[in-house]
Amino acid sequence: MNGDGLDASGSHLLVQDCLFVGLRDKGVSIGESSQVFSKDCTFRNNGLAIAVKDLSIAHADGNAFIGNRIVFGVYQKKPVFGGGVLTVYNNTLEGNGQEREVDSRSKIVSSGKVDEKVEEAFNVTEDR
């Protein structure tokens, strides 16, 4: 399987309770000023589980990352944009090759709890 599982460009997206398995490229690719919340998903044996690029903002909470080559990649891909920002909360990581790859224009922030305003922005509920 080549290509990405889910490729978001310029979009606002809640990805909840999804399963991404065996994708040689990215499980979720987030680009071009997208905002994405990945919640309670499983990423298994992908090339890069979550990529955040080009002024995109992403949040990851409650996910399981198992056996991926890289878990988080945050970077600028297209010069017209800037880097990306990923906030990681409570996720489970097991048997991955590398946890993160971040360029100088981007950052990964660790936080213990998802801010209510973030949950509100993505309309997150525990049971849909």
Binding site: G3, L6, L14, D17, V21, S29
Partner: peptide, 27 residues
Amino acid sequence: EGQDDLVDIDRSTGAGPWLHLHRSNRW
């Protein structure tokens, strides 16, 4: 088993959580 990307979401805008991929979606 797609040749390239599976789900591609482009420039989808609006109010609220207008994109929502949920429960047991499997890639």
